[in-house]
Amino acid sequence: MITAERKPLDEILELVGDKKKILVAGCDTCVAICLTGGEKEAEILASELRILAEKDGRAVEVEHTAAIRQCEWEYLDMIADKVAAADVVLSMACGIGIQSLAEKFAPKLVMPAVNTNMLGMPQEHAVWLERCVACGECRIGLTGGICPVVRCSKSLMNGPCGGSHDGLCEVTGPEKEEIECAWALIWERLKAQGREELMFTDRPPKDWSKSSSGGPRKMVREEAKPV
């Protein structure tokens, strides 16, 4: 699923500027599941903005709402009236939802209240781990179902670098948390599968033109397009 984290309040305030009528728009799909931008969180942010305005003696009107999915036109119709009434919309959806909203209601001012950060797997309640970068050329069939592009800090394609120690990466995460060495995991998985030889096959350079390096991607399913 797509995950996001809320921006710091100061940054949100800066984006809102001196606008008087603010709509906080949550999205009840991915960002709701990751407890960042669903209706509940939209209500919390709206409350915070009202508390701050009151505290600082500013007259603002803050409403909140949520679309079932901000990334689909149909669901945006359902919040159109509230958007129309606002001077600025603070979207708590992922980057896709924010842009859909901005495009649908252009030139309405739509601001991001979250930072979309990854395609993550919920490892346990309230913990997400990055598992995919949508590189457009999946090779995990050769790596025991473990993606080295996203799980190796250097996106190595041909085995562990010299910084792998005790199953851990030499790099630590932003919160100084330990990171598992993807290639140590891959090696163990390949051994368990009896496919060790895959470790030693040459993997040519990746085709990054299939990723965002190739420009914005577009997918069309002709057979599924409406007639």
Binding site: K40, E43, I44, S47, R50
Partner: peptide
Amino acid sequence: LEVIHLLRAIE
């Protein structure tokens, strides 16, 4: 008790 309940009281 949820976060919003506490905030509403403060608000």
